[in-house]
């Protein structure tokens, strides 16, 4: 592993994931239905540099969680490639993949489901240590587990307890300790705080930032909450119906969103400072992903849509400040909302 030349830790090239959601064969024949393919992710590309946090945001069904699971190897991509530290995961042998697994871990959304209820906390945190043979003697394992528990703000005494004895926030700390135990460089966080209360969410977000600074971690952060995303990320990617519509620096994307969907999402954020004022209500809902609109998937809800949007799918094009936008209107400079932040 002497390939640490590039600054790019993860590169995702045109990945797609299709799920076959058809009814069983017999039903299809009787009801004369076609096979139904759900394109959960349809051609997504991005890179993550070492030490940064890339967030993917979007509404339910936009495929952001599927991207997280593809990156972690929980799903096999239908096409495209995932390159982790210059190694293409698809070409890597079983041993090499097992080696790579040590270096990336995942934190899940539901702190109540992500810990095995029948295991003691110490055993849960030690699992990666034992699987990857990082520590083998019981004394060594115990010492490491104690240290991890302290790092995430719990007590070494908690190792003897069962998950149900902890609150949601404390469980998420246990999840983080488990994810950190194999000394990974890269963490995929799938909505890690959306099941938590705000005060606990603040604790976890602060902890994640502290750990990132301390260990130089790289995060892929999945969330539907724009405020959380704006707080934690370096760069943000906005997804809509399985595709990335805009990627840019956090500051830029919130100060000066380009894609109409990003603008719409942003105006929908509840703002505490605007007490009593109305949000800009957003028209329409996310279409059924089984039958996505032709052309740009956003066109039925887009105030700037015109003929070309209905037929031709826009690709991500580089925008002046290093960001990328997939929108015909922006490309043709028909919408110009370049306002100083």
């Amino acid at each position: 592993m002497i390939k640490k030349s590039s600054n790019v830790l993860l590169e995702v090239i045109d990945i797609a994931k299709e799920f076959d959601v058809s009814k069983p064969w017999l039903n299809r024949v009787i009801e004369r239905q076609e096979r139904q393919i759900l394109k959960a992710v349809d051609g997504v590309s991005f890179t993550i540099n070492r030490g940064e946090t890339l967030s993917l945001v979007g509404e339910s069904g936009c495929g952001k969680s599927t991207v997280a699971r593809l990156v972690c190897g929980l799903y096999k991509p239908s096409r495209g490639s995932i390159i982790f530290d210059s190694v293409n995961m698809a070409d890597a042998g079983a041993d090499e993949v097992q080696q790579l697994r040590k270096r990336f871990q995942m934190i899940f959304q539901d702190p109540y489901a992500s810990l095995n209820p029948r295991w003691r906390v110490g055993k849960i945190i030690a699992e990666p240590l034992r699987v990857h043979k990082i520590a083998t003697s019981n004394a060594d394992v115990k010492q490491r587990v104690d240290k991890l528990l302290t790092q995430v703000g719990l007590s070494p005494l908690d190792a003897e307890k069962f998950p149900h004895e902890f609150s949601g926030g404390q469980r998420q700390r246990i999840s983080i300790a488990r994810a950190l135990s194999s000394n990974p460089e890269f963490l995929v966080c799938d909505e890690p705080t959306s099941a938590l209360d705000v005060s606990v969410q603040a604790q976890i977000l602060n902890l994640m930032k502290d750990l990132q600074r301390e260990f130089g971690l790289t995060y892929l952060f999945i969330s539907h909450n724009l405020a959380v995303v704006s707080h934690i990320s370096t760069r943000v990617g906005v997804m809509y119906l399985g595709r990335l519509v805009e990627v840019a620096d956090t500051k830029r994307i919130f100060a000066n969103p380009q894609h109409p969907y990003t603008q719409m999402l942003q105006s929908a954020i509840p703002d505490l400072k605007m007490t009593g004022k109305q949000r800009t209500p957003v028209a329409g809902e996310v279409p059924n992903p089984l039958t996505p609109p032709t052309g740009c998937a956003f066109h039925p809800r887009c105030p700037h849509a015109f003929e070309r949007c209905k037929t031709e799918r826009p690709n991500l094009i580089d925008y002046e400040d290093g960001g990328q936008v997939a929108c015909h209107a922006v490309e043709e400079k028909r919408i110009n909302i370049r306002v100083a932040a």
Binding site: S199, Q203, L205, N206, A227, S230, H231
Partner: peptide, 24 residues
């Protein structure tokens, strides 16, 4: 006061959120 400080908001430049230690 703690609850209000713990809510992240877009565009606030704070590195850390105010947090209430412990849990309910």
């Amino acid at each position: 006061i703690g609850l209000m400080g713990a809510i992240p908001s877009v565009g606030d430049a704070h590195e850390r959120l105010a947090q209430i230690d412990g849990s309910m």
